[in-house]
Amino acid sequence: MKTHYKTIVVSDVHLGTKGSKAKEIARFLKQYRCENLILNGDIIDGWQLKKSGSWKRKHTRFFNRILKMIENHNTNVFYLRGNHDDFLEQILPLQIGRLHIQTDMIYDSQGKKYFITHGDVFDSITTNLRWIAYLGDIGYTFLLWMNRVVNFYRFKAGLPYFSLSQYVKGKVKSAVSYVDDFESELAKMARSKGCEGIICGHIHKAENRMIDGIHYLNSGDWVETMSALAEDHEGNWQLIYYNEIDFKGIQLDEQSIGSSEEVESSVIPLRKVSFELPKDDLTPPHFRL
């Protein structure tokens, strides 16, 4: 089981909301190591914090985990702005050591270029009619509340988890059509940027597929699906779902690795070389649409 990756991408954590799975993503990041961590938007939900949201200790622990990844494993962290954390616009771009806060970026994966953006810039409702976007956010928040109520009773009845919000979105034709249009438009945007792939979030629908010759990747979210994208050192991408992770197996693997490292400690240790961006890419290009 792989626990070391070149790059991990997560998005739509929505810290500050009741639906955020802050404990789960912190546990997830504790089990995996990567050279690059890309936080692709809506990590902090500024919209909800302005209204009825609240900041919990578990939300702070998420960022503590990020800082430990930087300090202990020299992880490069890229925090890209989303629509719910658009307050970051006031400080963009910003770099503090290995932490980069920016609008978007172009990422090189084994010679293939991927345009990475949260995805809200392609949502004309969010961009042009902000008040409608806020109404949609209220409706979605209500669905997530109903989701918790339904699953509380399902749990008492011994039934498995059921995502009511995902079910409703899958039954609404306009929502299904929106997702299809969203994915197609992002694929077109990647091509216009001279890239072979696109990595996004925003719509809370994890995906890994080809669209008209463009590799479309969506990291999903940490409100419903609890998913992330991971790239190995050969340039292969995969989706990882929290509910499918064998945490006991990972711990056993880590223990075996730890014991083997203790045996090899008598040999002169070799310094591990971490991933570094080429000099030309130290300041990735930013695109404002």
Rank of each mutant, 00 (worst) to 15 (best):
R81S: 03
R33N: 12
I199K: 05
Y32D: 05
I138N: 10
S54R: 13
E71G: 03
K171G: 02
K30M: 01
M146D: 08
A26I: 01
E264Y: 06
I106F: 11
T17I: 11
T103A: 01
G119V: 09
N72V: 06
K171H: 14
E254M: 14
F247V: 00
A190R: 03
G16V: 11
W237D: 09
H215S: 10
G139L: 09
K30T: 15
F115N: 01
V9N: 00
S260M: 13
Y5G: 04
T117L: 00
G235L: 04
I116W: 00
K113N: 13
L159R: 15
Y79G: 05
G97Y: 09
Y134I: 12
E196K: 14
P160E: 04
T283A: 11
A230W: 04
I91E: 13
I125Y: 08
K188Y: 03
G170N: 10
D86K: 13
G82D: 07
Y79A: 08
R27C: 08
A187F: 09
L282G: 12
E264C: 00
S124I: 04
S163F: 07
E183N: 14
T126V: 15
K2A: 03
S256A: 15
H100V: 14
I106W: 09
Y241F: 15
L239K: 13
K68Y: 12
G249P: 12
A22G: 07
L270F: 06
L80C: 07
H4I: 02
L94M: 14
K18I: 05
T283D: 15
G41M: 06
G16N: 08
V273T: 14
K21W: 05
E24K: 13
I91G: 02
S109K: 02
I116N: 02
I116H: 00
K18M: 07
E231N: 08
S184H: 14
R148W: 06
D85H: 08
R27G: 10
H4A: 07
L49F: 06
S163Q: 05
K112F: 07
K248Q: 13
K279D: 13
I38V: 15
L29G: 12
V13F: 03
F155D: 15
I257V: 09
K156H: 05
M146R: 01
Q166T: 10
T283N: 15
N208A: 10
W131R: 06
S20Y: 06
D108R: 13
D120Q: 03
F115C: 02
A190Y: 02
M189P: 00
G46M: 07
V179E: 06
S165W: 01
R271D: 02
G249H: 04
I132D: 04
Y5D: 05
T60V: 14
I101R: 13
K113L: 13
P278V: 11
N243F: 11
G258I: 03
V263K: 10
S274I: 03
S219N: 03
W131A: 10
L159I: 00
K248W: 08
L289M: 04
H59N: 14
T225W: 01
R154Y: 09
H204S: 05
H100T: 15
V273N: 11
I43Y: 02
R209K: 15
W237R: 01
L186Y: 12
G119D: 09
I268T: 13
N36R: 09
D181A: 14
G213A: 06
T283H: 12
N72L: 12
A22T: 13
L143W: 03
